[in-house]
């Protein structure tokens, strides 16, 4: 066995020379592996950035340019006009209610889906995604068919004198429906990935159900939860289709900001229309910044 190696000339003693050669090859290949020539890379970058500028950057700029066309005075007066203020107020109320509702629902649904096995679990997962696949207009129509004056529950609602369609409850319902998946979808994968071991540890250490939830489960998903809430809020404030169907467009009463913007635009009040639109655009920018910060936090949580 051992004698075969000693018969060989010393220079080719196994391993070392090939190892050195390999190291040299690696040194040569130290620049990043890219096969595309420079012009292709530049071209691709220009196309991507150009597309972004044209379809996203430019419209955003135009919103602000149009809004400020007649100066700050016209801009501000368009915003403090009573109907506009009422639309802003309504939008804030609707968003506040639907975000809180979906926060609670999303958290509970994600918790149930990720941490427990129960019959109907996969159905629930599918249902959570439904609002993403249904057109918002259809969603609005469903509520009209259910609660409208010719709807399924019309007689009961009339008997109790409850107005849902063309009123705040309808708008809230439609908004909740449309923004329903945001929180839950953000939480489910994270909670599933985290598993139930930490909860089991907490319980084995003597923690009760609520204590476990608030000390272990919730803190573990807090950034994802906030992220979901942020997206949910952005959508709730900007929702047009579903709200448009159920609101009835009553000025100063059931007009949310997006609906108000449309009405102003159709009346050729461009400055006023863009002034209100600029608020929504600002909201979008704030959301973007907050989203970026949260994504950093989320990445740290995942570690």
């Amino acid at each position: 066995m051992g004698n075969s190696a000693s018969n060989l000339p010393l220079a080719t003693s196994e391993g070392l020379p090939t190892g050195v050669q390999e190291a040299r090859t690696y040194a040569h290949a130290s620049k990043p592996v890219r096969t595309e020539p420079a012009y292709v890379r530049v071209l691709l970058t220009i196309i991507a950035l150009g597309f972004l500028a044209l379809f996203i950057g430019l419209p955003l700029v135009i919103v602000f340019v149009e809004a400020l066309k007649r100066g700050w005075l016209a801009y501000v007066s368009a915003l403090i006009e009573p109907d506009a203020l009422e639309a802003i107020r309504l939008t804030l109320i609707v968003a506040a209610i639907s975000v809180v509702a979906n926060l609670i629902f999303g958290l509970v649904a994600a918790w149930a889906i990720a941490k427990f096995e129960f019959p109907g679990r996969s159905l629930l997962i599918t249902l959570i995604d439904l609002p993403f696949s249904v057109s918002p207009v259809v969603a609005g129509l469903v509520f009209v068919l259910l609660f409208g004056s010719q709807g399924l529950f019309a007689s009961q609602l009339q008997a109790w004198d409850i107005q849902i369609i063309f009123a705040l409850p309808g708008i809230v319902l439609a908004t909740i429906f449309v923004t329903f998946p945001f929180v839950a979808r953000e939480l489910i994968p994270l909670m599933q990935q985290q598993g139930t071991a930490e909860e089991e540890a907490a319980v084995s250490l003597g923690a009760g159900g609520l204590s476990t939830f608030f000390r272990v489960t919730l803190p573990n998903v807090k950034w994802a939860l906030l992220y979901g809430v942020l997206l949910c809020n952005a959508r709730a404030m900007g929702e047009f289709g579903a709200v448009s169907v159920v609101s009835g467009h009553i000025r100063g009463l059931t007009n949310t900001m997006p609906l108000h913007i449309e009405i102003l635009y159709n009346e050729y009040q461009f400055v006023a229309s863009f002034a209100v639109a600029s608020l929504l655009a600002l909201l979008a920018l704030v959301t973007l910044v907050a989203k970026t910060i949260l994504e950093h936090r989320l990445a740290e949580d995942d570690k």
Partner: peptide
């Protein structure tokens, strides 16, 4: 399990990731 007063060491430790070592130990 709450009432049995057993110390359980989990396979992948299941430490509370958002708590310091001190708080992990203090949890119980």
């Amino acid at each position: 399990v709450r009432e049995r007063n057993v110390g359980f060491v989990f396979q992948h430790y299941a430490l509370f990731r958002h708590m310091t070592v001190f708080e992990n130990v203090a949890f119980g």
